[in-house]
Simulated scan of single mutants.
Amino acid sequence: SVFIKKINKNLSLWAILNDKNEQSILSLVWKDERGQVSIDFEPIISDVIRNKYCDDCILSVVSTVGNADKKISSHNDVKNLSSLPPLNTEVFNNGLILRNYVDPQLLSLISIDLKPLLFIVGVFFGLIIFLFINLYIKRQLSLHSLIVKGVIRKEFIPYYQPIINVKNNRMYGCEVLVRWWFNKKELISPDDFIPYAENSGLIIDITDVLLEKTLTQLSSLNWQKSTAVISINLVPEQLENKQQIRKFVDMIIKSSISPKQIAFEITERMSFTDLDKAAIVIDYLKAQGINVKLDDAGTGYGSFSYIQHLNLQSLKIDKMFVDTIGTYDHKLFVLDSIIAFGKKAGMEMIAEGVETKQQSDYLLQSGVYLQQGFYFSEPLKFEQFRHYFQRDQAKI
């Protein structure tokens, strides 16, 4: 009973109601006229293996810390297994040490038995992985072809989200957001195709369609008679391609909208591969009167290095930081730091994702008066935006 109290809770105990006491590491036995109860201390897996393969190919030894050579209990070491390195050693909190020794021939036998099972398991999981990869590739190929068809059919359409100057409650401009009107029946969310389009390069063709439709639609509103700015998202790859950018500039010049009313936003979701080349392209855009803004500031690749290297003068504060207003989230300090940096650098700042009056008021008090989000308006289809723009212009 003293020994049982010291046994670690991780050891197994079970009672065997028979009169046999063979092949045990350590047994406690009670016997009287009614019969015998034996408690054996041994992992049951040892008995299973031993009974299947051999009687003397597993040796378990119990000793104490500081007396590793003094065995408390062990099986009869017929094959002198204790001269081999132990297969595993367990040291328990009560000072007991359990060592298990295994005949190498037994390991070979088990390995031979397991090979067919492991082969079957390997083939099964290999087949699952193959089917998953095959399905993924087919989906990507299917999505790729559907996007290509969508570009040809010009299924990608602009939605417009107003950007408000909260100092005078007038519209500063709008951000153009792409939507996919698939087969002219189903509206597909940007989250379902934008990541793939960006990674595959198809976003360039989508932007062509989007810019063309945007210039046509907003020209019909006499946009050029206002001072409002149109913001369009580009990926870094596009700003490293001067030929592509010249094509955009030509489209703008041919429209009735002034280049000064156009701004390109660089998304931080992807990194630049050549900042020097991008700097040359951005200087070219500035010479045409087109502003370039840093979108999602603080969430992606090297915001401040972009601002410094590319000489950007406008940034958009991501919704992630705006959401921290009124909370104890540590990112609120990041928001304040971004705003402080923008002020110090004399940058134009626009806050995205504004959804409450509390957020709007906090940003205004912090000096960020250009704001965008559901608090003011959700992204609008052209017909909805037409009415919004006309109401705003009527305030003049």
Rank of each mutant, 00 (worst) to 15 (best):
E240P: 13
L211W: 08
P158Q: 08
I204S: 09
Q261S: 09
M251H: 01
K247R: 14
S220T: 02
P236A: 15
A228W: 11
N233H: 13
Q224A: 05
N168H: 10
K242H: 08
D250Q: 04
Y159G: 00
D191I: 12
F156S: 12
L202D: 13
D191F: 14
D208V: 01
P259Q: 14
I266M: 01
N165A: 00
A263D: 09
I157K: 14
I266G: 02
V151P: 05
Q217W: 02
S226R: 06
Q238K: 13
I262F: 10
G201L: 04
G201H: 09
T207N: 00
L215Y: 10
I204C: 00
V176R: 11
K254M: 08
R246Q: 15
P259N: 11
K149R: 13
E240N: 11
S226H: 11
L211T: 06
I203Q: 10
K254E: 10
I257K: 09
T273A: 00
F248V: 06
A278V: 03
D274V: 08
Q238R: 07
P158D: 01
I232H: 07
T214M: 02
K184D: 04
E175S: 05
I157C: 03
K184T: 09
K260E: 08
I206K: 14
N168E: 14
K247I: 10
E155R: 05
L221G: 01
D205M: 03
S219M: 00
A228I: 06
I230E: 07
G173M: 12
A197M: 04
P259E: 04
I204K: 14
K225I: 13
I152D: 08
T273K: 14
L202A: 12
T214Y: 07
E212W: 07
N222V: 00
A228L: 12
V151H: 07
I266R: 11
F182M: 00
P195V: 00
N199V: 02
S271L: 01
K242I: 13
Q217R: 14
Q244L: 13
L177N: 07
V176A: 11
V249Y: 13
P195K: 05
Q244W: 03
E175N: 04
K254I: 01
I163S: 02
E198W: 13
A278F: 15
I157Y: 01
S226C: 12
V148Y: 04
F156Q: 05
I253Y: 14
W181N: 15
K167P: 07
I206H: 10
S200P: 10
V235G: 07
Y196H: 12
Q243E: 14
T267Q: 10
M171Q: 15
I252P: 00
L239I: 12
R269V: 03
P162S: 09
F264L: 05
S200C: 03
I253Q: 14
V151M: 04
Y159F: 01
K213W: 03
E198P: 08
Y172F: 15
W223V: 08
R179D: 02
I230M: 15
E268Q: 06
S231M: 04
Q224N: 14
Q217E: 00
Q243N: 15
I245H: 09
S231V: 03
I188M: 07
S258R: 09
V229H: 02
I232A: 08
S220A: 14
I245W: 00
I266W: 07
I266Y: 00
I204P: 01
A197W: 06
I194Q: 01
W223C: 07
Q243W: 13
L215C: 01
E265S: 09
